[in-house]
């Protein structure tokens, strides 16, 4: 669990982070979203003390982060940045082993861990472990960057625009992978982005920052239905907020059991995608299919529309 209490950072006359308080529960995925210059990166960097706060404190699992030397603290916290920051003179395996080496893990413990991570990120260890970063594609480099951040099994992972340099298709894949990895390892993640779609797609909780202040920190749906500030409403998008709201719920959650017909809709698809599919087919209802190919139930356009209205 990460507790940020009244953090403040000033550079000269400008306050970059102004009295920010937030809590990220264990195993949660928090996304901090804001325009450039909103202080979101500085806030993130104060969690692992790459930036020292002027006031306030950060607790990780109840322990003040200032209780140990900064470099030792950082070995317990995964850190992934935009453009991956892989060491060009080290192989993929050596890059991933960076923090385990710093922590003094034995080779016998490091090797299987590298293989496990490469498998988890769909990189064949035999083919990739001994490659150098410049021999990988952008998407592969990014995956290795995240694998490296997770290598020492950190309970907390901080990510600063990790997907910013990827093209939209690879980015979507990387986001899915990250969610799968998070479920698998149960890591607490704090991710910074300027992309609201990314924030809604990834976050259990989304924090909206502007000019150093945290305007709202809430469930994604609450940001849409009960924005605490007009700026939050503007940033989350007023014109397509109903659709955004639909995108937060899976088709499986709204399916009613029983007889079903119409086009097939995967249970994992969002209501937004389901609605689009039904409109495209000219159908008023569809069959929600589980991943194993069995029918879960019926989903009607009426039910979707009802869900798109804030409660």
């Amino acid at each position: 669990m990460i507790k940020v209490e009244n953090l403040r950072k000033r550079y000269g006359a400008s306050t970059v982070v102004d009295d920010v308080t937030m809590t990220v529960e264990r195993g949660r995925f928090a996304v901090i979203v804001g325009t450039s210059g909103s202080g979101k990166s500085t806030l993130l960097r104060m969690i692992n003390r790459l930036v020292e706060p002027d006031a306030g404190r950060v607790l990780i699992d109840g322990k003040d982060t200032r209780d140990e030397p900064a470099h030792l603290l950082r070995r317990r916290i995964g850190y992934a940045i935009q453009g991956h920051g892989l060491f060009p003179h080290r192989t993929v395996a050596e890059n991933i082993a960076t923090v385990p080496h710093l922590l003094g893990w034995s080779e016998a413990r490091i090797r299987p861990r590298i293989e496990e991570l490469l498998h988890a990120f769909q990189l064949d260890p035999a083919g990739y472990a001994h490659k150098f970063p410049h021999q990988l594609s952008g998407g592969q480099q990014q995956r290795v960057g995240v694998a490296r951040a997770l290598a020492a099994e950190p309970a907390v992972l901080l990510m600063d625009e990790p997907f910013g340099a990827l093209d939209p298709i690879i980015r979507g894949k990387a986001q899915d992978d990250l969610l799968a990895i998070q479920r698998r390892f149960g890591t607490t993640i704090v991710l910074v982005t300027h992309d609201m779609d990314e924030a809604f797609r990834l976050g259990d909780r989304v924090a909206v920052m502007s000019h150093g202040r945290m305007l709202q920190y809430d469930r994604p749906a609450a940001l849409l239905t009960r924005p605490a500030d007009p700026l939050v409403a503007r940033m989350t998008g007023i014109a397509d907020r109903a659709l955004r709201l639909l995108s937060l719920t899976g088709a499986g959650e709204l399916a009613t059991p029983g007889a079903a017909d119409g086009p097939e809709i995967p249970a994992a698809a969002s209501l937004r995608d389901a609605l689009s599919e039904l409109l495209w087919r000219g159908a008023s209802a569809g069959r929600v299919m589980r991943e194993d190919g069995t029918v879960q139930g019926q989903l009607t356009i009426a039910a979707i529309i009802a869900h798109g209205k804030p409660a």
Binding site: L50, H71, R74, G83, G85, T98
Partner: peptide, 17 residues
């Protein structure tokens, strides 16, 4: 590269490392 140095520090390397 600044990015690299930041990554190195962020992973917990001391100045010497």
């Amino acid at each position: 590269n600044r990015e690299l140095l930041e990554a190195a520090s962020g992973m917990g390397m001391s100045a010497r490392q």
